[in-house]
Structure formats: structure tokens, C-alpha cells
Write a protein that binds this DNA or RNA. Sequence first.
DNA 1: CGTAGGCTTGGGAGCGCTCCCAAGAGTTGT
DNA 2: ACAACTCTTGGGAGCGCTCCCAAGCCTACG
Lengths: 348, 348
Amino acid sequence: MAAARVRSGGRPTLEEVAARAGVGRGTASRVINGSPRVSAQTREAVEAAVAELGYVPNRAARALAGNRTDAIALVVPESETRFFAEPYFSDIVRGVGAALADTEMQLLLTLAGNDRERRRLAQYLTAHRVDGVLLVSVHADDPLPDLLEQLGMPSVISGRRHAAETLPSVDSDNFEGARAAVDHFISRGRRNIATITGRLDVYGAQRRLDGYRKAIATAGLDPDERLIAPADFSEEGGARAMRELLERRPDVDAVFAASDVMAAGARHVLRESGRRIPDDVALIGFDDSAVARHMDPPLTSVRQPIEEMGRTMTRVLLQEIASRSSGDAARERPRIVLPTELVVRESS
Amino acid sequence: MAAARVRSGGRPTLEEVAARAGVGRGTASRVINGSPRVSAQTREAVEAAVAELGYVPNRAARALAGNRTDAIALVVPESETRFFAEPYFSDIVRGVGAALADTEMQLLLTLAGNDRERRRLAQYLTAHRVDGVLLVSVHADDPLPDLLEQLGMPSVISGRRHAAETLPSVDSDNFEGARAAVDHFISRGRRNIATITGRLDVYGAQRRLDGYRKAIATAGLDPDERLIAPADFSEEGGARAMRELLERRPDVDAVFAASDVMAAGARHVLRESGRRIPDDVALIGFDDSAVARHMDPPLTSVRQPIEEMGRTMTRVLLQEIASRSSGDAARERPRIVLPTELVVRESS
DNA sequence: CGTAGGCTTGGGAGCGCTCCCAAGAGTTGT
DNA sequence: ACAACTCTTGGGAGCGCTCCCAAGCCTACG
């Protein structure tokens, strides 16, 4: 009878498991936490009791007694949720989820708005709510990372804020991705290669521009600054930048846009100007999002391993947490860069 | 000095706040939880102490003592994460986040895989991990909803499993959305209107088909079953269905696809067959996703208020939780349906 | 045969908070 | 002047678990 398994409305406690197994509370705890200091026989008895009672440890009690929460937070800037909506968000989450699957860790999702809110957030996160924090899509002047660092909260950042990032970070190889895109143009005979950049206060956007420049220089092409149009990652910004480009260098025959969405804006302007893609102007984007696959013609794009970034960030964070609690104070701060990949479609 | 604010490595406790304010622990607790049974003067003193010490209540202790967690879980079927990736996931999350913003509630993200995993999940969720559950994108035969219901866990489901949904639910008006799409075709003079359906074991897909049928019937058009092609929400399925349609009724002049992704597949086939959109065949999708905006030509689509669904689900859940704890056992199960909207673009 | 040391084991203390009872203070009514 | 209430307040008990100390048993060694 099911009723025999539970006391009045409650779920079984450790105490009950211990009683059922005929051992003490401490011993039962040891078994459940996988301590080696238990005899095989006792372990079996406790495990049987756990199974029979359907015992699941009470997280709150554990957290209170053990001074940890077995939870990590994924902090997403609210303003950019839509912006990064595309596959980004769900892919990151899938990666994080995968890395957490075999763990007891829970994932807390936190949408943080403005800077004031983020400052308060640091307080809350530190007040024993989570064991660690995953920071996604952080701006150069975000106060949160530094606050968390000061408060001693294990944290990992996706991308970086700048070249000298102090937090453990997991980034994709924006530089090489951009370079591969431009090299691809060059290998197909393009010579007047332009780029539309993202907001250059975002480190990744800067790196993409660096990669573009490097490829142009390596190929011995003329590094004309008029071929570089700054934008802001938006479709409209991409369109505007493309118009400038056409005006300054009507002979442009290839455009590397630092995001698929900007490429979509550029495509629109190119069409309006009567140019064919890829015949007259080749086009490459960045992100390999759904937009790229469904564009007409399908857009060649630089793929970032988003899901793997999520997985890697999580692994790094778990290590960070583990090393923190085992007292190795002076751990190396990992700074991981994952490779990007050029997905060639019909726009180039 | 910052060090003066904290004891050896720890954060301030209620006890310390009480001492600082010169009151008892119970009184401090009352102030922090907004009980009215405190004098204005005392309240002020405690609030000052809270501010000075930067006190933040310890969640674990609260959860343990209060037998609640102040957290709700958002359960997302892992297999469909990619499928529903589009705006869906992030929009739902944004809605949920917005509804939770003024609350102390935390959002737990749970990716659940297969049925076995979901069964275990019910155990875990019930073991005092969360106060309530938000179920997103649930199949008709998912064991989780019933389990949660049996276990007495407050839950809200997005969409429904079938017409006789027993859980509180928030759905969009699939029926009217489909009807509006078909009416739009009719008002523009289309007569041979086909539909590509989603998996019909998904209630929403069934309702979209019902709406299509209703519109056809109301307009007095010939309800030819050959104009109905079943698919599975995938791009490839959409393409296959479109091929069948063209074979059975080459004179088709309008297609309502039950998802944008299927519409993209259909578009491909229509192009291949030499038909122009919308001149020869008009096309409407469902979801109003990024794919729709970037398709060529931009796709007319039925927009669902996803973010609002997230917000509403959350509100309903919070009410459910509140009523549960205040003991109104026999509460009405809300079943909310939010309106959809036809976003007209160039494909129709 | 005595003692040191290794394994297991039981259970006390305590994590920080909420709940609730009882006591003190102040009011009102008779 | 006293009983009957109401409003505040303090603090004990206890939520379920982990940590850790001490005790009980054995085995091994001098």
C-alpha cells in the first residue's frame, strides 16, 4: 500500500531510511553521499531502504547543513534575449543541460536587466543561492563579473570582455572564423572584399575585424579602410553599412558581415542595387543561424559551436567549484577558445 | 570598513539583524516577511539594520523551515529543444521571467529527455525541490503531467494534451488562427486552398486543421480531402506534403502550412515546380518565426503571443500555488486561450 | 598478552529560518 | 479598580541534513 511508504503527507527522511535499514543516520548519509567508509553489507541495506521508500534527499536541508546549494545560475542579459534569440540561447542551454545531466546540479535561469539590477543580483547570487555562475553575452562595462569575482563566486564568462579577461572564459575563435571567410573569398577570385562589423566595443566583433584585416594583409591585397563599415549587429545597421559601402566602393565584389542578421540587411540593399548574389557580390555571414539557412540564396556563414561552448563553460565552472571547495586557492584561470567552421552555401 | 559588516567569512543572519536592531529574532522575521503585526517604529529599526548589514535571507534555511522553495521549474522536453528553438523557447522564457520579476520566485530550468527520465523527474520535483511546474510542449502521451497531478504538484501546461485537458492550461487560439489564414486566402480570391498539417497527435495541430475545415465550409467551398496533406512540422515533411498536394491537385492556388518551417519546405517545392509565390500559389505559415520574416518572399504567418503565454502561465501557476497553500482545495482549473494574429507579408 | 592503530558506526551539534505559544503592555468596558 | 481584550514581542522547537567526535571492534605487532 502506497500509504505505508510515507508518513502523514511527507516524504521519507534520512532518519526513516536509516531506521528501515537498521543503521544510524550518519551511516545512511555516508551511503547516500558515496563515502567509501561503509561496509559493503551496510551499503546494500541502506540502498535497499532508499529504493523501497523512494527516498530523495531534501535539497534545502542539504544546502543548509552543507553550506552549498548544488545549483548554478545562468545569467542572461534580458535586453539581449531577443537579440541573441536565434539558436544562441537554446543551444547554450542545451549544452549546459548536457553537461549537467549526470550531476546533481540544478540550473537556475536569471534574466538580468540594467546595471542596477545586475548589481543587486550579485548580492543575491552570493547569498548562498548558487555555487557558481555562468555569464552569457556580457558587455565590456558590465559591473557583474567584477562584483562576482570580488565576492569570490566561481564564475565563467562566455566570450570575453577584453583581451585581458581575468575570469575563466570560453570563447569561439572569432579571429580565425573571420579569416577563413575572407580566405574563402580570395580563393574564389574576389579582390574587393569589404566587411560590415558588429559593435566594436564587443570583443568578439573586434576580433572578427582583426581576422578580416589579417587575411587581407596576408593575401597582399590593398587594405582600403573604405571597405570597412561599422554597424551594430542589427539588420538595419547591416543595410545602412552596405549602402555606405556601395557608395564608397561600387566595385566591391565580396562582403563579410559579422553576423547573419547584418548579412540579411546587406543582401536586401544589394538586391535593390541590382546586384546578384553571388555572381556580382559574394556574401558571408557569421553565426550560421536559421536565418542563414533560409536566406535566398542560402547564406555561407561562420558557424560557432554554441552548444559546445555551453557544455565547456559548465565543465569549467564545475571544476572551478570543486577546486574552490577543496581549497586549491591558486588555480590557473582557464581561457578556452573553441574553433569555428565555415559553412559554405550558395551566397559565396 | 567592509570587514566590519560580516562575521568570519559568512553573510549576516537574521539573528544578527535582530541584535543590531535591538529586537528579537521573531520580530525581525516578521518585518522581513511583511507581517502587519509589527509597530512602525520597530519595522524601521529592523529595516535599517537590514540595509546596514546588507542582509539577504538564506533561501535554504527558509525552504527548510517553511516547507516551500520559492522556486518553480520550467520543464522543456529536450528532444524538442532544437525543434522549438526558434523564438519559441526564448520568448517563453522572457514571458516567464517578466512574470517572476517582482517575485522572490526563482526559475529552474529542467531539460527532460525520454519518458523514463520524465518519470524520475516527477519524483525529484516533488521532493520539495520546487513549488510548482511549468510544462512546455507536452505530447499527448507524456506521463509527466498525470504524475505531477497525482503527486499534488501545482502545474500549468502550455497548449493542451487533448480537448479534455485536466490541468490548468494556457493555449493560443489555433483554431481561429487557422481560420483567419484561410479566410484571408478566400478574401483574396483563392479557391483551391490546401493545408499541410502538423503531427495530428499534437492537439494544436488538430485544431489548426479544424480551423481550416471550418473556414472552407463556411465559405461554401468544396471540402476536398485531397487538399489536406499531413506532415510532421519538419521542413522536409512540408516539402513532401507539398509534392503530394501538387500531384493530387495541380490547380492548388493557396497553401496554409501549420508551421513556418513546413512552409519553407513547401516554398522550395513550389519554386522547383516553376510556380511563383504569391502569383501562382499563395502561402501562409504559422508561428511568425524569424524564418517567416527572412523567407523570400517574406512569409505571411499566424503569430502566437508566445511571450504572453509564458507570462500568463506563470501568473496562473503562482495563483495555483498561493491557493494551494491557503487551503482552497476546490479551485477552478483555469483554461486560458490567447488570441492569435495574422501577420500579412508578401507571400499571400 | 597488552597496546596501538585502522575500520565502521552512532548520534550530538548546529546550519538559519519559520511557526507558534506565552508573556508583557496598553485599552476599553463595567 | 478589575476583568477581558488586543497588539507586540521574544524566543523555543524543529525543519532534514552534514560534519565530526567518540566509541566499539578487529587485526597486527612488539
